[in-house]
């Protein structure tokens, strides 16, 4: 079985965001991590392989630094990695990323049974790539998945919907996007880290995929980024509990008018 995990390298969730003079978000001094939701995807891919055999290929679109994220996934237990790295993809939108991934997975890396992704990245948080990729590859998809099982070539996934959950049966090949709770992500072991250094990591440019710069044109353009208006500390209510509570209720009614 061929199992693919798509990942993205992103800022640490503890990172403070700084907008540079050019109106773009600066990554200077920011700690980079594997997008947390993608870790669940990689973990599920490795668990599926451990149960049913096969190989796990981790793929990403990114710059040179993204190799570190791929090595981390190899250290977790993935078999090999592919990085699509091209200057034309710097600042790529979800459309461009999914075009590049779809081309890779329909030609050079064709023949997969399952693709795992995170449900969204914690940076731009749009969560478009899983659904766009599923459409481009004409796959069944289950989004925001908290439980996954594979038996007799049939996949069963439980996913979050607003106010509840839903269980789906999918015909393979299928795309599963992972939500927190799907599994407990392992830390790479020391032997895993050593082995990862020798595992294959292929770097491809757009030309290697048979794509042109026009093929991956972004359709969404950032005009400007700004920091949101900072919230200010409001009133601190002090005194005996009964007084404080009465004051709060009065303020919520008369000043804030929210109850």
């Amino acid at each position: 079985m061929k199992i693919v995990a798509c990942i993205k390298q992103t800022f640490d969730t503890e990172a403070k965001i700084v907008v540079g003079g050019d109106g773009q978000i600066s990554d200077e001094g920011v700690n980079l991590i594997v997008n947390p939701y993608d870790e669940y995807a990689v973990e599920e891919a490795i668990r599926t392989k451990e149960k049913d055999g096969g190989e796990v290929v981790v793929v990403t679109v990114g710059g040179d630094k993204a190799q570190e994220a791929l090595r981390y996934c190899l250290a977790m237990g993935a078999d090999r990695a592919v990085l699509i790295n091209d200057p034309a993809l710097a600042g790529a939108d979800s459309r461009a990323v999914s075009v590049a991934l779809a081309k890779l997975l329909s030609e050079k890396e064709a023949g997969f049974d399952i693709i795992f992704t995170g449900k969204e990245s914690v940076d731009d948080g749009v969560g478009q790539v899983p659904s766009r990729l599923a459409e481009k590859l004409d796959l069944a998809q289950a989004n925001v998945v908290t439980a996954f099982e594979l038996s007799d070539g049939k996949a069963t996934a439980t996913r979050e919907i607003d106010g509840g959950s839903e269980t789906l049966e999918l015909v393979l090949p299928a795309l599963i996007s992972a939500q927190k709770g799907l599994n407990e992500v392992r830390y790479p072991s020391l032997p895993g880290i050593m082995k990862a250094k020798r595992k294959p990591l292929e770097v491809l440019a757009l030309g290697d995929l048979g794509l042109s710069v026009d093929d991956v044109a972004s359709k969404v353009e950032l005009v400007a980024a700004e920091l949101p208006p900072a919230r200010k500390a409001g009133q601190r209510l002090t005194g005996e509990v009964d007084e404080v509570v009465a004051k709060l209720v009065q303020l919520l009614q008369d000043e804030a008018k929210v109850i």
């Binding site: 459309r95 749009v126 478009q128 599923a134 998809q141 925001v144 607003d162």
Partner: peptide, 21 residues
Amino acid sequence: AVGKELAPRTAAKVDCGLVSD
């Protein structure tokens, strides 16, 4: 939950840009 997956899937089919959230 529906819009988060239906919009990008449709956007890929139509091949258009989508701004989420």
